[in-house]
């Protein structure tokens, strides 16, 4: 019973940075608290009331002191702020080679999808030394995806994507918590992340092999008849989606347009998602408002399917848009194993 931790494990590359900042503020805390408590005790011992009619000397202030205890904390605060921003930048900007994993929160579970199509519930697997970028959303209420051992956390917001990333530094099993109160079984919305060596991970992946997200997305792309307009070679009705991801897209500017002339948008996951859910929101230059594309809401494209479509669009290379008549591609024709476990 007395064997209990007071220090969480520090198992990612950002954890030591957070820890260093934490220790710095702890030192500040101890220093200033000790000063306050020490002076309180000291003054109590030195200046207790010795007689009922004792009247001490009446000071009214000292400009120097007052400026001092305004200026010094200000400087300390600025230092802490700047250091905090530096660590924050580490926490929010993922490296370019991070592996994408998609997380959907719902009452009361975490669903994870890997690019290879593997899925897990309330569990995640990662490789030591390999960065992972999570793109997170929710199907119902707010949740928050937290891995204390990695010092990372991000809310899952319905209708939007948020991201976090980490690079594990030691093999082990760590907690995943939901930290945003989400209803009755909030405290059961927990999971485990298993950090493995590369070889073990590959073994695990192959055991869980499924159709890749992008492959599933390609099927959806055909099934939902996206290909009829987003035809690649002919851009009369809709723009080509080839290699669109993370490009800057010039936006349509016509009469009464909300966007300024020459405005652009970065085609990140949030933009792709918005363009599927609300096609008229930000229309690419050269196309008319309102968009002729129908809106695909949750009943037509679930959050899971949305991730598959986006994975497909991200993987789409020049000239790879399928032909319009290719409506019924079988998985085997794409070289992926048939059937889903």
């Amino acid at each position: 019973m007395w064997d209990f931790p007071i220090w969480p494990e520090s198992a990612s590359t950002v954890a030591p940075s957070v820890e260093a900042l934490y220790l710095f503020i702890v030192a500040l805390n101890i220093g200033i608290t000790a000063l306050v408590f020490g002076l309180l005790v000291l003054f109590s011992v030195l200046y207790y009331r010795r007689a009922d009619d004792q009247v001490p000397p009446q000071y009214h202030g000292s400009m120097l002191l007052e400026i001092g205890w305004t200026a010094i904390p200000t400087v300390i605060c600025l230092i802490v702020f700047a250091w905090g921003v530096k660590v924050y930048a580490e926490l929010v900007v993922p490296p370019a080679d991070a592996m994408d994993v998609y997380i959907v929160g719902r009452q009361w579970m975490w669903k994870a999808q890997y690019p290879g199509g593997q899925r897990e519930i309330n569990a995640l697997h990662a490789v030591v030394g390999k960065p992972v970028k999570l793109t997170i959303t929710s199907e119902d209420v707010l949740h928050s995806f937290s891995i204390p051992a990695f010092r990372v956390k991000s809310d899952a917001v319905p209708g939007r994507y948020t991201t976090l990333w980490f690079q594990p530094t030691q093999v082990g099993v760590y907690h995943i918590f939901c930290t945003e109160y989400c209803g009755t079984e909030h405290s059961r919305m927990i999971g485990k992340i298993t950090v493995m060596e590369e070889a073990d991970y590959q073994k695990w992946l192959s055991e869980k092999a499924e159709l890749g997200d992008a492959v599933q997305g390609r099927k959806l792309f055909a099934k939902l008849q996206c290909v009829t307009c987003h035809a690649g070679e002919s851009q009369a009705r809709a723009p080509s989606l080839e290699e669109i991801h993370m490009k800057r897209i010039p936006l349509s500017f016509d009469k009464g347009s909300p966007v300024a002339p020459g405005a652009t948008v970065l085609a990140d996951e949030n933009y792709l998602r918005e363009s599927i859910r609300y096609p008229s929101a930000k229309i690419a230059a050269g196309y008319q408002y309102p968009s002729i594309m129908p809106a695909y809401d949750e009943s037509l494209v679930s959050e899971d399917e949305m991730f598959q479509l986006i994975a497909y669009i991200k993987s789409l290379k020049k000239g790879q848009t399928p032909a319009r008549n290719e409506h019924t591609t079988t998985p085997t024709a794409l070289g992926a194993p048939a059937g889903r476990p």
Partner: peptide, 12 residues
């Protein structure tokens, strides 16, 4: 109030 540490402490 410090960004770097609040991410870890938020909602704990």
């Amino acid at each position: 109030s410090t960004l770097g540490t609040d991410i870890h402490f938020h909602d704990t």
